Computed example of a mutant assay.
Amino acid sequence: MRIILLRHGQSLGNVDELAYCRIPDHALPLTELGEQQARAAGATIRELIGTGPVAAYVSPYKRTRRTFDLLGVRAERVVHEPRLREQDWGNLQDPTEQEMLKHQRHAFGHFFFRLPNGESGADVDDRLAAFIDRLEVRLNEDEAHPKTVLIVSHGLTIRLLCRRLFDWSIELFESLSNVDTCENRVLDHDGTGWKLDRPFDQWRDSPDGTVQHQV
């Protein structure tokens, strides 16, 4: 079994943080570069999928759906899965409050800090746990479900999904960086557990001394 994780291409919010103040997060489009990144990533993703069937689970946000469309992947199943959405920061954001909250979140810790009218990392972790549980049931018990899965999602969401699958500590999670736009990670199941093809970049050693699972 294989799970391919892909972050969306560069979006307007990645180059203009004030875009979140005038456009709902779910409606932010890809930039021109983001569209180019998604098209370029298509060949790599199709090679990782191989010749067998694939099921695609895609965050319903505009930038993730557009990224998937530009990959040129023919999936047997395509599910726009709300549990794979970005961490919710509330509705349209105030620029002054947005900057203040980012500083508070960094000092408090990204996992437990709850955004006003939004989610904490722990909230995202909870909804991903439900998604992973259901996905593993489908992979193990539904013979019609493809054994290769493509997930197109967001940086924090992908990091938390791996935290859940590998039971990483919260300290380790908070020490890791998001993958770049249109960067992938591949998880293969060897019959005993999931293996990660390569680690996430790490901006500090985990305070509790734990490390990432690797092949």
Score class of each variant (00 low, 15 high):
residue 12 L to E: 14
residue 22 R to P: 09
residue 37 Q to I: 12
residue 18 L to D: 15
residue 40 A to N: 15
residue 189 H to A: 13
residue 98 Q to G: 07
residue 82 P to W: 10
residue 125 D to Y: 12
residue 201 D to A: 15
residue 215 V to D: 15
residue 66 R to E: 12
residue 200 F to M: 11
residue 79 V to I: 11
residue 77 R to M: 12
residue 125 D to F: 12
residue 181 T to R: 01
residue 185 R to H: 15
residue 165 L to H: 02
residue 159 R to Q: 13
residue 82 P to H: 10
residue 10 Q to Y: 04
residue 71 L to Y: 06
residue 122 A to G: 10
residue 32 E to Y: 00
residue 180 D to Q: 06
residue 157 T to C: 05
residue 84 L to E: 02
residue 39 R to Q: 15
residue 161 L to K: 05
residue 106 H to G: 00
residue 104 Q to D: 08
residue 190 D to H: 07
residue 104 Q to T: 03
residue 139 L to S: 14
residue 178 N to D: 11
residue 48 L to W: 03
residue 210 T to Q: 10
residue 5 L to D: 04
residue 194 W to D: 11
residue 180 D to R: 10
residue 181 T to H: 08
residue 210 T to L: 05
residue 176 L to T: 10
residue 1 M to R: 11
residue 44 T to C: 04
residue 158 I to V: 13
residue 28 L to S: 02
residue 86 E to K: 00
residue 134 R to W: 10
residue 67 T to H: 01
residue 212 Q to C: 06
residue 22 R to A: 10
residue 25 D to E: 14
residue 11 S to C: 03
residue 181 T to L: 00
residue 138 R to S: 13
residue 109 G to N: 02
residue 123 D to I: 10
residue 181 T to Q: 09
residue 50 G to V: 08
residue 130 A to S: 09
residue 183 E to Y: 00
residue 76 E to F: 01
residue 156 L to H: 12
residue 211 V to T: 14
residue 59 S to I: 03
residue 128 L to N: 06
residue 104 Q to S: 07
residue 82 P to V: 07
residue 112 F to T: 09
residue 43 A to Y: 04
residue 73 V to P: 01
residue 164 R to N: 11
residue 167 D to S: 15
residue 111 F to A: 13
residue 195 K to G: 11
residue 153 S to F: 03
residue 32 E to R: 04
residue 69 D to Y: 07
residue 57 Y to N: 06
residue 197 D to C: 15
residue 51 T to N: 13
residue 97 E to K: 10
residue 65 R to Y: 05
residue 89 W to T: 13
residue 61 Y to Q: 02
residue 81 E to A: 07
residue 168 W to I: 05
residue 85 R to G: 06
residue 92 L to I: 09
residue 118 G to F: 05
residue 172 L to F: 09
residue 2 R to F: 05
residue 143 E to G: 11
residue 155 G to Y: 00
residue 178 N to T: 09
residue 196 L to I: 10
residue 197 D to G: 14
residue 24 P to C: 06
residue 8 H to S: 06
residue 162 C to T: 14
residue 40 A to L: 15
residue 103 H to C: 02
residue 169 S to I: 06
residue 129 A to S: 12
residue 160 L to Y: 07
residue 127 R to V: 07
residue 113 F to E: 06
residue 114 R to W: 03
residue 140 N to I: 01
residue 20 Y to A: 13
residue 115 L to D: 08
residue 49 I to C: 10
residue 52 G to M: 08
residue 60 P to M: 01
residue 167 D to C: 11
residue 187 L to A: 14
residue 145 H to L: 09
residue 34 G to N: 09
residue 124 V to R: 00
residue 74 R to A: 14
residue 130 A to M: 07
residue 60 P to L: 00
residue 125 D to S: 08
residue 214 Q to T: 15
residue 145 H to T: 07
residue 5 L to N: 04
residue 99 E to K: 13
residue 69 D to A: 12
